[in-house]
Design a protein around this nucleic acid. Structure first.
Lengths: 156, 156
DNA sequence: TGGGATGTGTTGGCACGTCCAACATTGTTT
DNA sequence: AAACAATGTTGGACGTGCCAACACATCCCA
């Protein structure tokens, strides 16, 4: 697929750094997820999965709320919903109380699709974590969550 | 800086997944590195650092070799060198033996700049790894390197 | 000695994720 | 009523990573 750079050939100052390893892990994750989404087809991507997951877990809400809770920009939410609605995975109707606001809800078909995507993504987890033992996987997940969820280290 | 999404608000199916945590770690790394490079100024970015590091460690070589050893596409190497050369951090002269080939070498100024960038990036490591103890950092680095450097899992 | 294959630097472009600015429109606050 | 804030949308920017095509140089082998 991609050229894949031989990891033995990496400047030592780079290889030693945590940020570099995170970047390389991310590259692998991206490659695996991209391939899996492509294979599963239908042109859905990680944005769509995130939105479906949020709607499934928290129920219907406005697009703005959806964006805030998923960390996706309002404009990108608009775009992604434009993909999901025509597929019947999501409905959009304007809030009767607030004419400007649109309430988004997941459909039964959307729930089904979400389940399918769950399976696809679980397969990716398995492939990604393959080099580690179950105990190591648990350790990695724990450390990763501490490194991932850090309040915005705002400059000074 | 960026909006930063409250991690407590994340669909459980996402939060549980290793790929998601890697993505979030990468987002943080990107934010920290971007801020650090911006602050240090001069418009240099991670591409430039990678190239300087490779030239410093392995000596002068052609652009194509440089690209192969760093995993950066030939065309992107061309672009990045176009930033480094005018700053005097790098020299480019055509190989006397092969008129088509250009040998790139780091200059003393480039070495100095590389050292400065080292310091900048080390600062980022510290901030990124802050939530972990030294022992945990070592564990994380070990696990991350196993997850990062995996031969191209070509399809089947 | 030729001629096809292969390597090289460069330009231009695409895809993807992320983010921001502006805008018309609708609600809220005072 | 007037200033203000929120909503959905459009259009665009940027960074990273690819790939295709090109003109040219060099190599290898028939």
């Amino acid at each position: 697929m991609t050229a894949h750079h031989d990891p033995a050939d990496t400047p030592a100052r780079l290889e030693a750094r945590a940020t570099w390893r995170v970047s390389r892990m991310h590259a692998r994750v991206t490659r695996l997820l991209g391939a899996a989404f492509d294979a599963d087809g239908d042109g859905l991507r990680s944005y769509h999965y995130r939105l479906l997951a949020a709607l499934n877990e928290w129920g219907a809400m406005s697009q703005a709320d959806l964006g805030r809770r998923t960390g996706i920009d309002r404009s990108d939410v608009t775009g992604a919903l434009g993909d999901l609605e025509p597929r019947g995975l999501v409905t959009r109707h304007t809030d009767p109380a607030h004419a400007r606001r649109k309430i988004v809800a997941i459909t039964p078909g959307g729930v089904g699709r979400l389940r399918e995507l769950d399976a696809v993504i679980d397969g990716v987890q398995e492939r990604f974590l393959a080099p580690l033992t179950p105990a190591q996987r648990r350790t990695f997940l724990d450390l990763a969550s501490r490194l991932a969820d850090v309040p915005p280290d705002d400059g000074s």
